[in-house]
C-alpha cells in the first residue's frame, strides 16, 4: 500500500520564514558592529558578545531548548548591546540582557507574546538601575584597543563616576546649546550608544532589510516622517528647544530605533492603519520628549510607550471586511 500524506491546503508557501527574518536582521547588524568597532574600538565587540551570549544562555535556562532555533533571543541580546553606552561596565550589559530575555520576553510567554520591545525594556531597566553609568559617554575614536576605564569593573564595585567625558549631539544641544556638525552625525564619529552613531550605515541597512521584506516599511517611514515634520514645525517656533529636522533625524538612537526597534513585528500593531499610527505616535513622542522632557534623548521611552498602547491600537484599527459597511 502506497503511503500518501494528508496535509491542509495551501500546499505552496512563500519562502520567507521567521528564523530567516531573524537571521536577516542579525546579519544586517554585522556591518554596524564593524562600524561601531571603528568608532569606539574593541569594546563594541566585547559588549555585543557579552549581551548576545547572556541572552542565549538566559533563553536556554528559562525556556525549552527548541525555541533557540528561531534566533530571537540572540537578536534581543545583540540589539541591547548596540543601544548601550560604550563605557558601561560589561556586567551591567549582561544583567540588562538577562533581564530583557528573562523578564522582557520569556515571562510573557516567549517569542510573539511579549508586549514591550525586550531590548528596550532591558535598556530601560539599566537606565533606572544605573542612571549615572547609563548617561556617561565615551568620546569616539580613543584608540582601537583602549578599553573604557570601567568596562571590566567587577559587579557592584567601582560605581564612582569620573564625570562626563564626552557629550552626545543631543546632550550637547540640550545642556550646552551646542550644535554638532551634520557630517559627523552622518559618518558616525560622535559620542553615543554603540550602534546608533553611523546614520549612513543604518539607512543602508534599513533599505536592505526593507527590500528583503524583513520588516514592514510603513513603520520606519511613518516614524521618521513624523519626526521630520514635527521638528520642522517646532524648530521654526522654538529653535532653542527643538533642533532642526536633520539633526533630529541624524542624532541619538532615532535611526537605529527606526530600523531595528519600531520594526519589531511582535510589539507593534498588526493592522496597516495601526502601523501608520504607531510610527506617527513614536515620532511625535520622540520630538516632544527630546524638546520638552528632562532628558536629551527620548526614543526608548517613546517606543516603549507606543508598545504599551499597541493592543489598543490593534483593537481600534481592525480592518473593514470586504463588502462590509465603511
Amino acid at each position: 500500500m502506497s503511503k500518501l500524506l494528508l496535509v491542509s491546503s495551501p500546499f505552496v508557501r512563500d519562502e520567507r520564514n521567521t528564523p530567516q527574518l531573524m537571521r536577516d536582521v542579525i546579519g544586517s547588524l554585522v556591518p554596524i558592529l564593524i562600524m561601531s568597532m571603528w568608532v569606539f574600538g574593541v569594546i563594541a565587540l566585547l559588549m555585543v558578545a557579552v549581551t548576545g551570549a547572556t541572552a542565549v544562555v538566559t533563553e536556554r535556562l528559562v525556556t525549552s531548548k527548541r525555541s533557540l532555533h528561531d534566533g530571537s533571543a540572540l537578536l534581543t541580546g545583540l540589539l541591547l548591546g548596540f543601544v548601550l553606552p560604550p563605557g558601561l561596565p560589561l556586567w551591567m550589559g549582561a544583567l540588562g540582557s538577562a533581564f530583557a530575555v528573562g523578564l522582557g520576553k520569556a515571562a510573557f510567554g516567549g517569542l510573539g507574546a511579549n508586549i514591550f520591545n525586550p531590548a528596550l525594556l532591558g535598556r530601560a531597566f539599566l537606565q533606572a538601575a544605573f542612571p549615572e553609568a547609563m548617561t556617561t559617554w565615551v568620546a569616539p575614536q580613543m584608540g582601537f584597543w583602549q578599553l573604557p576605564e570601567r568596562s571590566l569593573a567587577w559587579p557592584l564595585m567601582g560605581s564612582h563616576v569620573d564625570g562626563i567625558s564626552a557629550a552626545t549631539p543631543l546632550g550637547g544641544f540640550k545642556f550646552q546649546g551646542l550644535t554638532t556638525d551634520l557630517s559627523e552625525m552622518v559618518v558616525g564619529t560622535t559620542a553615543g550608544s554603540l550602534g546608533e552613531t553611523a546614520t549612513w550605515l543604518l539607512v543602508l541597512c534599513g533599505l536592505w532589510l526593507a527590500l528583503r521584506k524583513a520588516f514592514d516599511w510603513r513603520l520606519p517611514v511613518s516614524t521618521l516622517f513624523s519626526v521630520a515634520l514635527l521638528s520642522w514645525v517646532l524648530h521654526a517656533t522654538v529653535p532653542e528647544r527643538c533642533a532642526d529636522p536633520m539633526t533630529m533625524l541624524g542624532s541619538g538612537g532615532l535611526m537605529f530605533a527606526a530600523v531595528f526597534m519600531v520594526t519589531d513585528p511582535v510589539t507593534t500593531p498588526v493592522t496597516a492603519k495601526g502601523m501608520w499610527l504607531f510610527g506617527f505616535g513614536t515620532g511625535v513622542l520622540v520630538v516632544l520628549i527630546r524638546s520638552f522632557g528632562g532628558l536629551p534623548e527620548g526614543v526608548m521611552y517613546a517606543v516603549l510607550l507606543m508598545n504599551a498602547v499597541t493592543p489598543w491600537i490593534n483593537r481600534f484599527t481592525q480592518p473593514r471586511v470586504f463588502g462590509g459597511l465603511a
Binding site: K3, L4, L5, L6, V7, S8
Partner: peptide, 8 residues
C-alpha cells in the same frame, strides 16, 4: 490508515 496526517 489510508494516509498519514500531518498538521494541527
Amino acid at each position: 490508515n489510508a494516509a498519514e496526517y500531518s498538521g494541527m
